[in-house]
Design a binder for these strands. Structure first.
Lengths: 223, 223
DNA sequence: ATATATTACTATGTATGCAAAATAGCACAA
DNA sequence: TTGTGCTATTTTGCATACATAGTAATATAT
């Protein structure tokens, strides 16, 4: 169980995503501040930052600090278009190797997600949601696909910073639910599974777009 | 025309991909040697290395140096599976905004690729091939898709190091040629375009698998 | 001659220091 | 008050120096 080694960079990533803003002026998140927070030097922090910058999650402006990318409606649509075809692919591959055990596991995650959401336990519901999708990825047997979708999930997560993270609770439930995904997978019909996944993600996308429109009006004028 | 700034990291990437090997023992490619070659310090080199390592192209072993990943047949299939659905997506989107001008441009790249390949001018044919595919990406209007496919192309390029790069010349031509892709795009039928692209890439994948099998036998036993 | 312990070396990981760029604050003049 | 130029400050970019881990080679004992 190797956990300690990798965890630092993961922690730094989480920390950054949760703390950065896209405002102008000076950012209170700097290489120095992150380094100080984790009691390391700037060097390892920089490596994480470069990674995030490369993935388009942050942008660093010299002598100003680190800022979140202000995603446009188009950006969100583009990224979700990519994520959709990749999760469809995963679902299609997953049906080939599905087992009763895994189906049971998926149902458990689906149940936990639903219950936690009902109780407004955002952290727990997100965690179970993540496990649900990652299990399907795992099932696809395609390690590269798994890795790349994980990256994309990191981007989409950053769309909705913690401060704005209310959208899930205020909305109706996703009509293309995890339960329906499980049912489709159980039929072992690739196209059916892909269809449900596609609609599932499409619903999430629309939800995020709505949320961004509600929250993001003020960011409009700024360059 | 900002070229100088970004070029260094691009050059470093090219240099690394062209020089690393997957052998055991000590590598002659080290942070130090790369830094010395480009007359910079290890710091900027490390940033590029971390990026490549993250993309799964290289692996760095402490006190041994930098090595290429030894891709298995399964890795190649996984990565090409991902690339295929993404290029299909690009083609489907591209037909929406295709114009006679772009079709002409694509035909030009197709012609140059073909001619250069006939003359065994590998560099030129690769360049034109890249432009062909990137033009379709551009046409899709999805910047994120464009970026992510570019990354994947970097990985697939690293499958076949320069030293082994003969496969293209020794084989029959791709039956799902660039010409046929252009024709399919011209019909503005998304499914048709995606179908040709899919087969085009599938042919390349099989070609690479064959080449790896011929060249890579010796890498088998090693961990 | 072979196996093992010790030592020197090599290359990465991390920290620190210095240079450059861009901003923000302040003084001063109109 | 408002605009302009200078200076100090902030923060990134790059370089260097030190710490650590893993390897290879040598020496020693059996």
């Amino acid at each position: 169980m190797r956990t300690k080694t990798k965890k630092l960079s993961e922690k730094i990533i989480t920390f950054i995503i949760e703390n950065i803003s896209g405002d102008d002026g000076r950012s209170d998140v700097t290489e120095e501040s992150i380094a100080a927070h984790f009691r390391v030097s700037r060097t390892p922090v920089r490596e994480v930052l470069k990674h995030l910058e490369h993935n388009g999650i942050i942008q660093t402006r010299r002598s100003k600090g680190i800022f979140s990318k202000n995603f446009t409606r188009e950006d969100v649509e583009n990224i979700y278009e990519v994520r959709t075809v990749l999760e469809e692919l995963a679902a299609k591959d997953a049906v080939k190797s599905i087992t009763p055990q895994v189906l049971k596991e998926l149902r458990t995650y689906a149940r936990i997600t639903k219950e936690a959401r009902k109780k407004r336990d955002r952290r727990k519901s997100n965690e179970a949601d993540r496990l649900f999708h990652e299990t399907i990825m795992e099932l696809s047997g395609n390690g590269y696909l798994k890795r790349i979708v994980k990256e994309i999930r990191m981007v989409t997560t950053s769309f909705i910073p913690a401060s704005k993270l209310f959208y899930l609770n205020n909305k109706d439930r996703n009509p293309y639910s995890h339960d329906k995904i499980v049912k489709a997978l159980a039929t072992r019909n690739p196209e059916a599974a892909a269809w449900v996944i596609k609609n599932h993600i499409c619903w999430i996308k629309n939800n995020i777009l709505e949320s961004l429109e509600k929250n993001g009006k003020r960011d409009q004028g700024k360059k």
